[in-house]
């Protein structure tokens, strides 16, 4: 497996319909999705997407149904051709790759998990999971060995000779996950890869992904409707509405500083105590006495509160990675933030 690869998406537009190209300038000029549909019978899929996905990180994409998440992720391996824009990966524009280069890029650089699974119904679990390696030309013995490892890792040992129609939805989704992981590609595209899983298995699969991420860093684009999931695994989160990105940043950015009402609605039910780290809400050092009590800046807010209450502190020092004090947090502010008042 090679080094992690970043993805840069620049000025990406997608307008569905036979004459999409003609309306790019109108959309750039501010025509809305509704207007485009009513007047010209074309569907605005994506509008001016600019997104830098850092190498080796998990980028979460969120948004309501129909906001364009699947459309966006399909552009990264060009299952959909954009109407305008570019997608730079390792200095190459995916949009302009000739067919052979695109095929090789898909074989070796990307793997994808599909919202509706996309399994081959006439193949057994084992042969579905080994599909990517088979297409690359690996012989059966070698690919079956790798495929079996991942089948076990997603908890489907014993089902390898079954057909997809003999499995439940959640099991089929894990077959899709194993198929993508078997490819061991540096870029992993996951379109609601966990949406059909029950909460326990879902948590397990999140852990599989995070473990994997600590062993070999992949660049992962992860679509989900579940904010807790997004906050647990996402290094960065982007929010889509009607085909536009309306906010992107870390989970804390989005929870603490929602760009508009749409975003605040998205984040209003989240447990801030578990998400927010003291480093992002601390105040400058002042004279208040902390009696030498200090916590690291990545401590969660609820943990900080617990420590302050048990030690009866009104204020606590916040230290950076090198254990130097960089700020302070007062009990008052800690309570205000966790109650959503700041």
């Amino acid at each position: 497996m090679s080094d992690p690869i970043g993805i840069q998406i620049r000025n990406l537009y997608k307008i569905f319909g036979p004459r999409g190209g003609e309306f790019v300038s109108a959309v750039q000029g501010g025509m809305s999705k509704q207007e485009l549909n009513d007047k010209h019978r074309h569907v605005l899929g994506l509008r001016d997407i600019n997104l830098d996905i850092p190498a080796g990180r998990i980028q979460v994409i969120m948004g309501l149904s129909g906001s364009g998440k699947s459309t966006l992720i399909r552009h990264i391996n060009r299952l959909i051709d954009p109407t305008a824009g570019e997608i730079m990966i390792e200095g190459q524009d995916v949009v302009r790759m000739p067919p052979a280069a695109l095929r090789s890029f898909r074989r070796h650089k990307t793997a994808m998990v599909f919202q509706k699974f996309g399994l081959l119904p006439h193949r057994t679990v084992l042969n579905n999971v080994g599909y990517g390696l088979e297409v690359q030309g690996m012989d059966a013995a070698a690919r079956n060995e790798i495929a079996m490892r991942w089948i076990e890792r997603v908890g489907l040992r014993g089902f390898e000779t079954k057909y997809p129609s003999q499995l439940s939805g959640g099991m089929q989704q894990r077959v899709g996950l194993a198929r993508a992981l078997t490819n061991d590609a540096p870029i992993l595209l996951m379109d609601e890869a966990y949406s059909a899983l029950d909460p326990l298995i879902r948590y397990d699969m999140q852990t599989v992904l995070l473990d994997l991420q600590s062993e070999v860093r992949k660049t992962i684009v992860f679509i989900t409707h579940d904010l807790d999931e997004a906050l647990r695994i996402g290094d960065r989160i982007a929010l889509l509405r009607d085909g536009s990105i309306i906010q992107q940043g870390t989970g804390q950015d989005i929870v603490l500083r929602p760009a508009d009402d749409y975003v605040s609605n998205f984040v209003q039910h989240v447990d801030r105590g578990k998400v927010v780290q003291v480093g992002s809400i601390m105040e400058p050092m002042s004279a208040s006495n902390t009696n030498g009590h200090a916590i690291p800046e990545h401590t969660t807010l609820s943990e900080a509160l617990r420590q302050m209450l048990s030690s009866r502190l009104q204020v606590i020092d916040v230290n950076d990675m090198a254990n130097r004090p960089v700020g302070q947090l007062s009990l008052e502010r800690a309570i205000a933030v966790s109650a959503g008042a700041a």
């Binding site: 095929r103 898909r106 509706k116 996309g118």
Partner: peptide, 21 residues
């Protein structure tokens, strides 16, 4: 269509897509 997208996403050639999917 989604099954064919999956076949494409893993880099199937046209021939592989035809005979395998």
């Amino acid at each position: 269509g989604e099954v064919l997208e999956a076949a494409d996403a893993f880099g199937s050639s046209r021939w592989q897509r035809l005979v395998k999917a």
